[in-house]
Computed example of a mutant assay.
Amino acid sequence: MTALPEMLSPLTVKIEQLLLDPNNPRFSELGEDLNNVSEGRFADEKVQAFTFDKMRADVFDVSELKDTIKTLGFLPMDRMVVRRWRGNPTGTDDKYVVIEGNRRLTALRWLISLHEIGKENFSAEQLNNFTNLECLLLDDEAAPSTASLILPGLRHVSGIKEWGPYQKAKAVYALRKSGLSSQDAAQSLGLSTRAANSAYKCYLALEQMKNDEEYGEHAVPRMYSYFEEVFKRPNVRTWLSWSDDDEGFTEEERVKEFYSWIIPGDDGQSPKLPEAKSVRELSEILSDDSAMNILRSPEGSLSRAVLRFEVDHPEDWYPKVAAAASAVNSLTPDKLRSLDQSTLSSLVELKDKITQALKDRESLIGQQS
């Protein structure tokens, strides 16, 4: 059997020769049946217009792709895969159905239509980039009938591994420092401007830690998530005094204190903020002197500090505990049997936190006696 890559050959086409697939498997995400348009109707103007409109649904994120292509151009490294349109019996009109790349074709058509109505003004060079395309032609006579599902599946199911938050932030930083505006940097990476700006600040915060003589060696990419949580918590961000002008935190003493809480102790003890989401609990106790004094003490821990806070502020936590107890009591045998692994893990985590809180209470009572 011939390998699938050997059934693909380079092909240069005009964008007018490409047809969006009206039976695109993506449309199942819209709750529609597949394979409901006959091959002979694919090139009908209204069929293509209707398919174009469906492809612009929010679920397919074509708008962000359009902005990226507008900023960077259409890059030839990511060629669309096409097959010959079988609905042309005379063979006089070479058209091709897109198997893999319907989002890209939609984005290109969208940009061209905006240019035609005067909402965008592209140069001749840009329009040439959008309309003269390098594709890969599938020999669908030799290829298995499943090829139209296998090829998109290679990309979208097993797919290209998406960048993690740190890698995205590093890319935003590099683009911003190269001279791009925050909006252009965001569009280049298919991000919203707000998300790109947040990533930029988080990256700067981690770089600030990296440049600290005392704590710099601990500023590894996995620490990035701590600063994501910081910027989600306005009171923590304010406590550390973030400055857009200085592109860093300016409250040096507090910054160093925060660093000390997110790294292991000298004797190998776990960090006082053992995971990034611990910043959420720090946010709750930050304005409470008693709780913060416990956190700062040599033997203090976040769980003990939170317990102190909850004892002093029962109105903040008791209703949540009562609601959790009520929810657990409502679990019928049938519900218990059908719990998925994620829900079970949450229940185990809740049990562990309750056990730890009760141990901390006993410890605090012992210190007072």
Rank of each mutant, 00 (worst) to 15 (best):
Y203P: 04
N129A: 09
N211E: 13
S345I: 03
A124C: 01
V172G: 01
S63N: 04
K210F: 08
T343I: 14
R254G: 02
A57I: 00
L20S: 03
V230L: 03
S270D: 14
Y173Q: 11
Q208L: 04
S192N: 04
V220H: 08
R155Y: 04
V279S: 12
L127A: 06
L358P: 01
D44I: 05
Q126R: 14
E349R: 13
A174M: 09
K168I: 15
R176T: 11
I15A: 05
E229W: 06
F309K: 08
F60G: 05
K66G: 02
L4Q: 08
R337P: 01
R26C: 05
R308E: 15
A322D: 12
L30Y: 06
L19N: 12
P333Q: 04
V59G: 00
Y226S: 03
P234E: 12
R86L: 12
N132F: 10
A196Q: 06
A324Y: 06
N293D: 14
A196M: 04
D244I: 04
K335H: 10
L302T: 02
Q341I: 01
D140M: 10
L347N: 04
F231Q: 00
T51E: 11
S290R: 11
K359T: 07
K54Y: 11
S113I: 00
A195D: 12
K210I: 04
G248T: 09
W261Q: 06
A324V: 05
R233W: 00
M209E: 09
E207C: 10
I294V: 15
L344A: 02
P234A: 10
P10L: 07
S241P: 00
S192E: 11
H156P: 00
T343C: 07
Q167N: 07
L18W: 03
L307R: 12
L204W: 07
Y96N: 14
Y215D: 04
L127T: 06
D33R: 14
K168T: 15
K95L: 13
N36D: 12
